Measured scan of single mutants.
Amino acid sequence: QVALSRTQVCGILREELFQGDAFHQSDTHIFIIMGASGDLAKKKIYPTIWWLFRDGLLPENTFIVGYARSRLTVADIRKQSEPFFKATPEEKLKLEDFFARNSYVAGQYDDAASYQRLNSHMNALHLGSQANRLFYLALPPTVYEAVTKNIHESCMSQIGWNRIIVEKPFGRDLQSSDRLSNHISSLFREDQIYRIDHYLGKEMVQNLMVLRFANRIFGPIWNRDNIACVILTFKEPFGTEGRGGYFDEFGIIRDVMQNHLLQMLCLVAMEKPASTNSDDVRDEKVKVLKCISEVQANNVVLGQYVGNPDGEGEATKGYLDDPTVPRGSTTATFAAVVLYVENERWDGVPFILRCGKALNERKAEVRLQFHDVAGDIFHQQCKRNELVIRVQPNEAVYTKMMTKKPGMFFNPEESELDLTYGNRYKNVKLPDAYERLILDVFCGSQMHFVRSDELREAWRIFTPLLHQIELEKPKPIPYIYGSRGPTEADELMKRVGFQYEGTYKWVNPHKL
Rank of each mutant, 00 (worst) to 15 (best):
R254F: 02
V256R: 04
M257W: 00
H260E: 01
H260Y: 01
M264K: 04
L265C: 10
L267K: 05
E271V: 04
A274N: 15
A274M: 07
S275W: 03
S275H: 04
S278N: 15
D283Y: 05
D283G: 11
E284L: 08
E284K: 10
K285N: 00
V288P: 03
K290I: 01
I292D: 06
E294F: 12
A297V: 14
N299G: 09
L302M: 14
L302D: 02
G303Y: 04
G303K: 01
Q304H: 05
N308P: 08
N308C: 13
A315S: 15
L320W: 08
D322I: 05
P323C: 13
G328N: 05
S329R: 04
T331H: 07
A332N: 08
T333V: 00
F334K: 06
V337L: 12
V338R: 10
Y340W: 11
E344G: 10
E344R: 09
R345K: 11
R345V: 11
W346R: 02
D347W: 09
G348C: 05
V349T: 07
F351D: 05
K357V: 01
A358K: 00
N360D: 15
A364C: 13
V366P: 04
L368E: 01
D372Y: 06
G375C: 14
D376S: 10
D376Y: 06
I377S: 08
F378E: 04
R384Q: 08
R390T: 08
V391L: 06
N394P: 04
N394A: 09
A396I: 02
T403W: 07
T403C: 14
K404F: 00
K405Q: 15
K405R: 13
P406V: 08
G407I: 02
M408Y: 10
F409E: 15
F410E: 09
F410I: 15
E413G: 09
S415K: 00
E416S: 10
Y421D: 06
G422L: 10
R424D: 06
Y425W: 09
K426L: 11
N427W: 08
V428A: 15
D432L: 07
A433D: 02
Y434N: 05
L437E: 05
L439H: 12
D440G: 06
D440W: 06
D440E: 09
V441E: 02
F442S: 02
F442E: 03
C443E: 11
S445A: 15
M447Q: 04
M447W: 03
F449R: 03
E454L: 06
E454M: 02
L455E: 05
R456Y: 08
A458T: 00
A458V: 02
W459C: 04
R460I: 03
T463E: 07
P464T: 10
E470M: 09
L471K: 15
P474T: 15
K475E: 14
Y479F: 04
I480Q: 15
Y481V: 15
G482P: 03
S483W: 06
P486H: 04
P486R: 02
R495I: 12
F498S: 07
Q499L: 12
Y500M: 08
E501M: 11
E501K: 10
E501R: 11
G502H: 12
T503K: 15
Y504I: 04
